[in-house]
């Protein structure tokens, strides 16, 4: 069972109170983008064994979307943070590295928005 703490209302919500929203931190490719970028934005999703960032909605609660960092293999939850956050917060990264010292973020948290589709997913 997965229990995530909603960062908006502070409730530790059990999985059935939440609605899954798929991979987090996708960058939208719309008009003006290449076909490959647009296709990757629509269909290409990561499916890692290990650290993963996801969107969840507190459906049977405050109704807000939030982000969660968790391990898809062990179900360990590294933390949750608000949906308005463009990148996983330093606290989340620290929590992940506490468990996996070798793990390195594959995003540049100094840039204002995600700049590319997930590596290896574009053609």
């Amino acid at each position: 069972m997965l229990t995530l703490t909603c960062p908006y209302c502070g409730i530790a919500a059990e999985e059935t109170e939440l609605q899954p929203g798929g991979e987090a931190h996708l960058k939208r490719f719309g008009p003006g983008s290449s076909d490959a970028e647009f296709e990757a934005y629509l269909f290409a999703r990561r499916n890692p064994k290990g650290v993963h960032f996801e969107r969840w909605r507190h459906a049977y609660g405050c109704g807000k979307w939030f982000m969660a960092a968790r391990d898809t293999a062990t179900l360990q939850v590294y933390g949750t943070y608000k949906a308005q956050t463009p990148f996983p917060t330093p606290e989340i990264v620290a929590a992940i590295q506490h468990r996996h010292p070798q793990w390195r973020p594959d995003f540049d948290a100094t840039s204002p928005t995600p700049t590319s589709a997930p590596e290896g997913l574009t053609q």
Binding site: C9, I11, T16, E17, Y60, G61, C62
Partner: peptide
């Protein structure tokens, strides 16, 4: 706020 069986 939670659910009671299937209802919010």
């Amino acid at each position: 706020r939670t659910r009671a069986a299937q209802a919010a």
